[in-house]
Design a protein around this nucleic acid. Structure first.
Lengths: 249, 249
DNA sequence: CAGTGGTCTAGACCACGAG
DNA sequence: TCGTGGTCTAGACCACTGA
């Protein structure tokens, strides 16, 4: 018997609608509310949690937008059928990606310094040729074994003082979020197959001319400003890229 | 002088928030509010249109969700920079893909026959090991030059009589749609970097051990049934994969 | 400090679905 | 007819930004 007496804690720092949202999500994930289930009405959820209907609606709206629920006027709100795994084409950091694959992410700094953008980088980052960029070159590890070489460039004005941060074994994105409040929500990425040159192959501890996947990514902040340019080389023997495709329209 | 006297018509059948949404969108699309512009505050929009702030928020919320606006607490709401091209991660056929890249697609049949699925294919297509599949192996051309090797397998019961169709230089998906009414809307794909063996390299007219991108795709019908399994080898010197990424959540 | 967006309330009327 | 979600109001307090 799982008693769900207290759904909403008005003393919490978390918004009430967020608490309700989490509560609904847990009912879905646990299977208590299976796909197709009619969930309690908005008025009922409001009474149960002792919150107003508009607040309930905010929680439900977000879940509808995320595709977890769908509403039918005059009938009610239902749990959606599960899609094929979500998020295969979502934006993730190396660290998140490796954790999802069940491996422990790590990083070894190769070099990090600040320099003028130059023509190619200026174009990618949509800044002036003379603008400074923070340039960080790291060997990325998965379970302590080399997995990829990753070179990130960020306009220096977005991350003043970043050169004083320690990046060894830390997620760049976590630092960017926590220290600079930077969050992006979209990126454009290209992927190609290449052969590794001697130096790169050595760092990745594979034979020269081994195949690799080269990815180039340009990320954008919510404001639309270009935020980073990253070029990575992934060992083909350890890495494969997965993606979920939707039919347009 | 563009007088915007009447923004909201309370007599309209259209919801007030929808009218305001359209009004904001037209200001963005016309360029009156360019990217980065601070738009009027929620309270101000409410007064101007003589509607409540909650209604204004509904309009703005939807536009924020669509990525056209972004809000910053304590500062205001701003027009987003225009998005990167959409649909880079949508499901396309080889033919569509090549046309989008400005090249003329083509195909040369290598072999096509029917056989029992076997263990691996049965698993990918979610059918029985003894079920028949249609197996088609083609060289794909772009502007008459080899671009990829493509091997498609489809459960035979979905496409009876397909062996009588001519597939040379024709889009498989077009035939499937026109003759069998088959349409899919989602797929799962993996991508890896590989080296080409002698035989494949020869067909693609590149040196042996050239790099290539191998993709594996499993497509699903609207009903959820697995529909095809495709393995392709793309010449790395001619092909690069582009994808648009969204931040989850 | 004033102004902004973020959250929340306690009502209200409507259109729609089903019995 | 009753219950549902869809829309809307007129307030309120909060946390945050910037002067």
């Amino acid at each position: 018997m799982d008693n769900e007496k207290v759904i909403i804690d008005k003393g919490s720092i978390l918004p009430l609608y967020h608490q309700l949202k989490v509560h609904i999500e847990s009912n879905i994930e646990s299977g208590r509310w299976s796909p197709g289930t009619l969930i309690p009405s908005e008025r009922e959820l409001g009474e149960t949690g002792n919150i107003s209907r508009m607040t309930v609606r905010q929680a439900i709206n977000e879940l509808v937008n995320e595709g977890k629920l769908y509403s039918v006027r005059g009938k009610g709100t239902f749990v959606s059928r599960p899609k094929i795994e979500q998020g295969l084409s979502t934006l993730t950091s190396f660290s998140q990606d490796m954790r999802k694959r069940g491996m422990r992410p790590g990083a070894k700094m190769i070099e990090a310094f600040t320099h003028e953008a130059g023509e190619k980088i200026a174009k990618e980052l949509d800044i002036s040729v003379e603008d400074k960029v923070y340039d960080m070159y790291r060997l990325r590890l998965a379970d302590d074994e080399p997995m990829a070489l990753e070179r990130s460039m960020i306009p220096m004005d977005l991350v003043p003082g970043i050169e004083k941060e320690s990046m060894e074994d830390r997620s760049l994105y976590e630092i960017l979020y926590r220290k600079y409040g930077l969050e992006f929500h979209e990126a454009k990425q290209t992927i190609q197959a290449v052969l590794l040159h001697a130096k790169e192959a050595e760092m990745l501890r594979v034979p020269m001319d081994s195949p690799a996947m080269m990815t180039e990514r340009v990320s954008y902040l919510n404001s639309g400003r270009t935020f980073e340019y990253v070029r990575s080389y992934y060992r083909a023997d350890r890495y494969q890229y997965s993606i979920y495709l939707n039919q347009a329209e």
